[in-house]
């Protein structure tokens, strides 16, 4: 059973690696064969060169962006945990706040970021706030869903053992919601980096977003591509961290037959 699962997993990674390789190959062909002018599409080699040349600057800016993303994500997780748990315990709160939660999600990030800069200045605060706002929602919603999807029969069983509301939450509802929580967190982790970059883009002195604006203005497309690669790498790093955390926090998932998409 276990070995079968493993081969399933590696098997599922092969097509992904193949398509990625094909995409890079296509890019290589298109630029090297001059199908597309090099000022529009830099060659992979040029991008690699830009990456190497600007490595110290990129690394420094990536550090800033990663810090903003991580801080914002942490704030998003914390507020989602608190609010979702409160809403779960107090039905009136749920009915009162849920619509507002949904509405806040329809406010476009690009509109919000300059406002936050206006209110909080050009420092890190508006970036962290924006990331917290965008990451909060997927986590809160998946937690609420997780709490609500607890097995009612299991709750009855615990009640028949004499468990109170708090014990049912601790031993049943919270652990049952963990899988949902991590699914939401994974989505949020990818939002976090993009959110930080957009926020920097719309007002700031440091970070990958600022670097991006600078190289765009200089029409340095090779550097533009390089910074995109760095953003992808940082996002993947954060998402990988979430997956690693999930494995630690939910060791039982490895034995369940439920398919997960990671």
């Amino acid at each position: 059973m276990e070995s079968m699962k493993k081969s399933d997993r590696t098997g599922s990674k092969l097509p992904a690696a193949g398509s990625l390789a094909a995409a890079v190959l296509l890019w290589l062909l298109a630029s090297e064969a001059r199908l597309v002018p090099s000022f529009l599409l830099p060659s992979p080699a040029a991008v690699c060169r830009a990456l190497a040349e600007d490595a110290p600057v990129l690394l420094e800016n990536a550090g800033v962006t990663l810090l903003e993303a991580a801080l914002g994500l942490a704030a998003g997780i914390l507020s989602a945990l608190i609010l979702a748990t409160l809403m779960h315990h107090v039905p009136v709160l749920y009915r009162a706040l849920y619509p507002i939660l949904v509405i806040t999600q329809t406010i476009p990030t690009v509109a919000l970021a300059p406002l936050l800069v206006l209110w909080m200045g050009f420092g890190m605060a508006p970036k962290v706030t924006l990331v917290a706002l965008t990451t909060f929602f997927p986590i809160a919603v998946s937690l609420l869903e997780g709490y609500a999807s607890t097995d009612r029969a299991a709750a009855d069983l615990l009640r028949s053992m004499g468990a109170g509301r708090r014990q049912i939450f601790r031993y049943l509802e919270f652990p049952s919601a963990l899988s949902h929580f991590f699914s939401g967190l994974r989505v949020s982790a990818s939002y976090a980096v993009v959110g930080a970059v957009i926020s920097e883009w719309l007002g700031g002195f440091q970070g990958l977003g600022v670097y991006m604006i600078r190289v765009k203005k200089a029409y340095a497309f090779d550097k533009m591509f390089a910074v995109i690669l760095v953003i992808v790498a940082v996002s993947l790093l954060l998402m990988g961290l979430v997956t690693a955390l999930r494995r630690r926090a939910c060791p039982w998932e490895a034995f369940e037959k439920i398919e997960r998409n990671d």
């Binding site: 009855d156 028949s160 053992m161 004499g162 652990p175």
Partner: peptide, 27 residues
Amino acid sequence: APGQVSYMLQRDLLLPHKKVLDNAALP
């Protein structure tokens, strides 16, 4: 008054996130 008589429901209802020992010790 719950918590006096033990109740075993139709399914085994072992909590998937707890080890077998912790499931048994839960009451």
